[in-house]
Every structure is written in structure tokens, then in C-alpha cells.
Design a protein around this nucleic acid. Structure first.
Lengths: 200, 200, 200, 200
DNA sequence: TATGAATGAGAATTCATTCAT
DNA sequence: CATGAATGAATTCTCATTCAT
């Protein structure tokens, strides 16, 4: 098999590979994975169609890289909050901070999130990556809470549920689709719900 | 515009159209919209490829019909709960009932929900249909609650948020993907959160 | 998997499938397998590129059908000679007849023989088909000779060797490439050699 | 025509050119000409893809060089036999020697022979080279035989036919594909046939 | 209405060759 | 001379849609 996938070492090449990933990111976000073809990605990245296959095994391989980037972007800002945490925990502030961080992440990445997440049911690797992301976040948060002395029943369930709820809110909030919803009021509802969840 | 899309009158034709929709439903659910082709749908429905275009303008038209069916399936069972509601409202029971109904709906339709919902960002009509579904449910529930004397602040926001939360839970619960989660415990968390949300 | 390979029943479809095989036959013979593309085959057959994949799994599948046809064409005329064989055997006549039949087959099929045979070393199925052809011919001839009372030592080896020799001659003769060779004289040499081979 | 194909003067360059030819030789033999790409050849030779075009006009040019090497390898061992030939000629020994030399050549080069020979019908230069090889061998052998006093009718035809027969045998023998053939017995048949051919 | 063969535009991928460094 | 990244035309194959019957 003569298939040689370049692992670029030089700056220019790294740039080029990143440009392709970036192009994939933007086009998948805008049009979806299935509505984007490799020629478009190449053109958007300012490279030839051929070189795409110098850096990636196939179109799906680009997807996987885009996914990795997204996962980092989604994971880091929220987890950073737990690095600088005071004891005793102030849940109200903590929750508000996580909500705001999540909304911020969503503002920049909602479209790609949709595009990627829509593949979870038909692409096992993509599905697993999302599961892993959720698991990593849950586990990390549980650990952080425990270290700060919070240690109640059903902690994994609570954290996971909280995350889901915040995700849902962030999604709604960013798309701002329902004219009958005041997202600031909803935000208050989310905080109230989560406070009660953890105050137990 | 000489194109004639049949609106079937005879029983046999209605069957045939429904069989095509049903086939689309199953295949979209199993493989996703983009991984299903019209030949497969026709074969699965036991009809010829050509006749598909006698009943539907194009492949996407099948999608739209499938979507309608799904929306009904998702809407009805939950809304039925509000038809037989006692006053004064017992929120704990109500919430539990909605959760169970939603989980039940999801058990049967999670796959198609994924398949359809994944198109929301790239297909405006699909997106709007989902918005409409959410709006209809929210509005109906708000109305029912009001009629039963429940009338607090931010009701739309609360109801919408509650629905989102239940949806999330139902999804998690049905797929049962995280081995570190006990979904019965999570269910208790959901109920607690929502009780606190509405007890305010 | 939605791959449906038509097995044509109707006359028109059979014609079409045969036209594609025929086109493959001619183009492979003229330009070789690797220098022929599916678009050319389709055009030569007077069909669209798409329908080629309605009748054949892929380009190689056409090759395999062409091969089958060739094998029949190569096998039948020579084997027919053994259907009408007098006892006692007149080897001189028999050999001459086989030579002539083989040359005749080669006249019409030398190019496709080359094209197909050139794939034996890189395509196992093709290689096996040629082996099978040689084996079938050898076994059939040995059987026929035995039935007519010829039963000497090393019969399989002799028959196989005779066939190879005749093949070589037919090839040379048809291409007529060497100006220093008189193929009629060479034919006499072949007959003499084979007579001595079997007279032992 | 400003294109400059280097004729390497320095030792290192000659090595490099030879390494490329050697790589072509091995890969063409293993996978065939069309299943080998220039990147593979370069990699196998331990050079860059670009430099290949410093030494060769194009991929086919490598093929031609490989062909030249093969022709030498095929020509020399057999021709050497005629350098040390006793008078009067002992045909039985001579034939046996040629058979053994040819089998030996084939043992080492059967694969590349197949790969190259398969191109004869579509590449005129390759075809001509093979013709030339056959002609050179025939002419040389005829000359040698004549010098040793053997001078019969149809000598070119006989020699050519003998060579073909031996080639066929060597091919069969090396690949050893037919389980119903004893190649030692077949070898005896070949010798017998050729003795009778020349004893006339 | 119904069939399923046929179309052809479009997608993914390969690879001989060139070129900037 | 040498490198290996880059090009883009060419190729295989798919599939929504049409059409002859």
C-alpha cells in the first residue's frame, strides 16, 4: 500500500494542514458534513484537492480532526473554572460561571456542534468521542467537587444532569429561536433548579 | 409547473404512500437521511423506484412527511396527560407522568428523532418544524397549567426549560450510554429540580 | 447495503449487458485493462456510465465476464474436435486439426488473450481461471485419448506440453512478427515434434 | 526541449539511478507496472520522488530501463552456453543445458518477465524489445549451430520453436501450478521433442 | 398508475509530474 | 543535485431523478 499520510513537521505544512481543518470546520458548521465536499474544503483552504489526501486519509479523517478540535474547545473553558475554585464552594457563583462559559463556547461553536453531534448515531467513532467528552467532564467535575469537600449522594448523576441542563440552555440561548422566551429569565430558572439539585 | 404530485384518493394508493413514508421512517432512523437512498426506500416499501416520485416531489419530501409523523408521535402522548388533569395540580405526579410518557416516546422513536433533528441546522423547514413542535407543546402546557390555576412568573420559560430537561433525560435514559450513571437516581434528580422550578 | 446488481431477464436488458461486455472485450483487447476506463466502455457500448454499475459490481467484474466469454471461445473449438474422433487415432490429422483450430481461435482473440493473460500474476481470480482452463483442456483431452485406446506414460504431461507448444505456435503465427520465420515451415516442425512426443 | 535528463557521471549518482531501476524492477515484478506508482519506487529506492524525474523522463522510462536489464539477464546465461560448445554437437546435452539455464533465469525473473511481457501488446517499444530479444537469440543460436557444422532446413524456424517450447516449459516449471503435472517427466518430453525436431 | 431500466451530474480519491526551497 | 509538498486532471463509482413501456 503506497498510502502515505503526511505528518507535517515544517511550519508551512502545519499551517496548511490546519487550514484544511479550519476549512472543514467552517464548512461542516455552515453546511453540514454531507453537504460539504472535499473540493469545497480544498478551495476554502486555498489548496488543491490532491493535497487534502496528503494530510488526511479521507474526508471522514478531516471530520475526526475537526471533532478533536471542537472537543478541546468545548472542554477547556468549562474545566478551567474548576482550577481556580475557592473553598467553601459557592454553588451559585459556580453554576453561573459554568453557564456563562458554556454559553460563550456555544456562541462560537454551536453550528459545528450541531454538525458533529448529528453524526453520533451513524458514526460510532464520533459517538464515542462525544460520550468520552461527557464522561471526562463529569468525572473531572465530580473529582473537583469532592476535593472541595462536596460529597453527596448520586453525585455523578447530579453532575451529569446539571451539565445536560446547562448544555440545553446554552443551545436555546445561543440560537434564540423562540420569541416567547426571555432567556435571562430562563437562566434564572436554570440556576434555581441546579441549586436545588445540589442542595440535597 | 406541470408536475403533478398525486394526492392519493384510493385506499390502495394511500397504503402505498404510507408504506413509503413508513419505509423512510425506518431507514432514516436506522441509517440516517444521507445514508439512505431512494432505491432502498422503494425496496423497503415494496414499491418501484419510479412510483416514489408519483407521491413525493423528491427525497426531501419524504423526509418532511416522516417528520410530520414523528412530530405527531412525540406531541400526542405528552399532551394527552393534560386532558385528564385534576385540580388542584399535583406537580410531583404530573412531572413523573410527563417523564414517563416522554421516555416511552423516546424508546420507540429516539433513532428517528436523532436522524431528523440532525438536519435542523441545514434544512430550514425541518428546523422550523422542530421549533413549532416545541412552541406548540410549551404553549399548550402553559395554557393547561393556567386553566388549572397555576399562574406564576416566567411560565413560558419554566415550561420550556422543564421540557428540555425531560427531553435530555429521556434521551440519556433510552440510550443508556454511560455506565457510571444510574438512570433511576437521575430520574429522582430531574423530578426534584423541576419541583423546585415550579414551586417558585 | 443498497447495491443492486441487475440480472437482466428481458431481451433488451440482456442485449445491453452483452453490449457492455462486448465493449469491454474490444477495448481491453485494443488498449489493455488498465488503459481502458469505464466511461470509454459505456460510450463504446452506447450506454450511460451509470448503467454499467447496474449490471456490474465494478470494472473488474466486467473483466471477469469478458474472461468467461474468452475462456468459452478458447475452449470450445478445440474440444469439439474430440467429439468427432475416429478410432484408431490418426495423430497427424488430430494434431493438425488442433493446430488449425487453435490458430483460428487466436486469430480472433489474440489481443484479448494478451490483455487477460497479462493480469494473471496480479489478479488471483484471473490467474485461477486460466489455470482452470488449462486443466480442463488437459483433463478432457487425456480422457478422450484414453477412451480411444491411447494410453501411455506421462499422458498428462504430454498433453499439457503439446497444448503449450501449440499455443505458442498459434501466438507466433497470428502475430507474424518475425520476418525471418516462415510459419508454414514452423507448423511442420510443430507437428513433427508432437508426433514424436506421442509416439513414445 | 529544454528538459535535461541527467546522464549521471559520478559514482553516487549512478548508484542512485541504479537503485531506482532496481526498485522499479522489484515493484513491477511484485505488483505489476500499473499497480506501482512512482512514489513507491522512490521510497523503495530510498530517494525523493522529485529526483526520479532527474534521471528518468517519466515512469515509462524506468520501465524501459528495467526492461533492458531484464533482457540482459535473460539473454546472457543462455548465450553463454554457446561460447563453450564442442564439435561435434551433442544435442541432448545442449538442449538439457539450455533448459536448465532457462529455468534458472526464470526462477529469478519470472515475475518481472510477466510484468514486462504483459505490456507488449499495448506498448510498442516494449513489444519491439521482446521481439528483438527473440530475434537476437534465434540469430545467435542459428549462427553458432551453423559454425559447428549443423546446417539443416528451416533452421530459424526450428531454433525459434525450440526456444518457445523451452520458455513455456520453464514458465510452467517455475510456477509449478498444476498438481497433475510432474515437471521432471515433462522435461523428458521436452528433450525428446526437441531432439526429434533437430534430428531431421 | 406502475415498473425498473437508464441517465448523467457529481462525489471521493489517486497519481504522474512539477516546483519552491 | 535533492527534497517532498503541491498540483489538478483523470478515474471509479453513486444516486436522485426521469422515462420508455
Amino acid at each position: 500500500m503506497g498510502e502515505i499520510i503526511r505528518t507535517p513537521q515544517q511550519k508551512r505544512s502545519i499551517d496548511k494542514k490546519n487550514r484544511i481543518i479550519e476549512a472543514g470546520y467552517e464548512l461542516f458548521a455552515r453546511d453540514g458534513y454531507f453537504n460539504t465536499n472535499t473540493a469545497q474544503i480544498a478551495k476554502h483552504a486555498g489548496v488543491s484537492t490532491g493535497i487534502v489526501y496528503g494530510y488526511f486519509r479521507d474526508k471522514r479523517d478531516i471530520l475526526l480532526e475537526v471533532l478533536s478540535i471542537y472537543v478541546d474547545k468545548a472542554f477547556t473553558p468549562v474545566m478551567d473554572i474548576f482550577d481556580s475554585l475557592d473553598s467553601p464552594l459557592n454553588f451559585e457563583t459556580l453554576i453561573a460561571n459554568i453557564i456563562d462559559a458554556t454559553v460563550e463556547v456555544h456562541k462560537n461553536n454551536a453550528a459545528i456542534h450541531e454538525a458533529l453531534h448529528s453524526l453520533t448515531s451513524t458514526d460510532e467513532a464520533v459517538g464515542n468521542k462525544f460520550l468520552e467528552l461527557e464522561k471526562d467532564m463529569t468525572v473531572n467535575i465530580v473529582e473537583a467537587l469532592t476535593q472541595h469537600g462536596y460529597n453527596r449522594d448520586s453525585l455523578y448523576e447530579k453532575v451529569h444532569l446539571a451539565m445536560e441542563t446547562i448544555q440545553s440552555y446554552a443551545h436555546e440561548c445561543v440560537y434564540d429561536l423562540h420569541d416567547y422566551i426571555d432567556y435571562d429569565k430562563m437562566r434564572i430558572g436554570v440556576i434555581r433548579m441546579l441549586l436545588s439539585l445540589f442542595d440535597n
